[in-house]
Design a protein around this nucleic acid. Sequence first.
DNA 1: CGGCGACGTTAGCTGTAACTAATATTGGAT
DNA 2: ATCCAATATTAGTTACAGCTAACGTCGCCG
Lengths: 229, 229
Amino acid sequence: MQEQPTRPAVSRSRQNYLKALLQLGGAAVPVSALARRLGVSAPSVTNMLARLAEERLVELGPRGAASLTASGERAAALVLRRHRLLETFLARVLELDWSEVHEEAEELEHHVSERVMDAIERSVGHPTEDPHGHPIPDRHGRLPRRALAPLAALPEGSRARVCEVRGGEDPARLTRWKRSGLVPGAEVRMLEANSDEGVFTLEIGGRRVVSGREGLEGVMIERRPRGKA
Amino acid sequence: MQEQPTRPAVSRSRQNYLKALLQLGGAAVPVSALARRLGVSAPSVTNMLARLAEERLVELGPRGAASLTASGERAAALVLRRHRLLETFLARVLELDWSEVHEEAEELEHHVSERVMDAIERSVGHPTEDPHGHPIPDRHGRLPRRALAPLAALPEGSRARVCEVRGGEDPARLTRWKRSGLVPGAEVRMLEANSDEGVFTLEIGGRRVVSGREGLEGVMIERRPRGKA
DNA sequence: CGGCGACGTTAGCTGTAACTAATATTGGAT
DNA sequence: ATCCAATATTAGTTACAGCTAACGTCGCCG
């Protein structure tokens, strides 16, 4: 063992694998899915999974299906926590556009010390959600599970509140959503839902917005119980 | 060539070598000095210097003496710039203690994007000095040269203003200086300078402080022209 | 002027984490 | 039942940047 900058317990690469596993469901994730997500080759994944398995962070099933162990899941959630705290910080304190914060956090999450993370968290007042509405895991790696529905599933005439927008990796998409008012917290009403053709007409903040199904994919709502307008 | 995260023009390690070269005077730096400073072995240095020479960032003289080229010096100053901006940011915005900011910046300087650096610089109002009083190079890599004198050289009875405290790598030392009021901007008067025995008595902000020569090493002053007690 | 010690270099390894090419496995369609 | 295509694995390589051990080259001291 040679040691240069105090090798971290979980290397940068490992952190990315764990995070990807968690976001891919955490259980029975195929090698190919991981490879696609991380943009690496399948052999690289097989290799890394073997190492992670050795370290008891994942468990390997048949046909390469990987599942996070309890400690792997915790580690993954802690990476997610840093990521989301950083996004919040970048948006609120440094005033970056919400379409930019994802890629910046993607890099920083691996390099910011505990000490600085604590200061960052203080500076944004211990938020529970990031700018895209994703819940922020607590410092023990507990990630609140929420049951949300896709906006496209909202019945005609119903109201709902946008809770979370997924797919923050694509800045252009976020920019489009922001322009039409599709941000967490926005109140929307489904005016017309043509599910067959995939065309939806919504009222967002008093404005009519028409969108295709792909344009809405990832926008998640919490159904308003009292909302049968 | 394999490329994972868009290999930076100048790798982390290179940046550290360049910065160390600049701080070691930038010209005719012996291998051994670099090795000591960076905490690596001599062969590692020889190796890296060869690569840097190939990239025209340094020039190699006889007996391994390394000198920065113009572009190497610029690159080094830009690393220093990031470092000092980060220190300022960490101290002023995240309110870390000035004894902690150095080591945090040491890591972050390699991983913060241009975009975020710009936002950071804005958030601290484009400072020209870091918390330890070091000048911050401009965005073209120009580093103002200042002629400062060590505090220990101040004649008895003279006044001066502390300009810069060097040696910020050692948090304990910074903490001691801060306790005795030796921070950039402090007004001091040399009450008694026993240079032979290396004992100095100073007046700092109305308080008498006695210190040995080592305890003052790195505290730099700008002589007050009108300051003959 | 011979040799010692400091300094530097060469050679060869280590570890991480990627890659390609070739091979094995496996599940579904014929 | 067989074969194909998708999926996963094995084997071998690459790049970076560190390491140790061994060797070379000065300069100076005696």
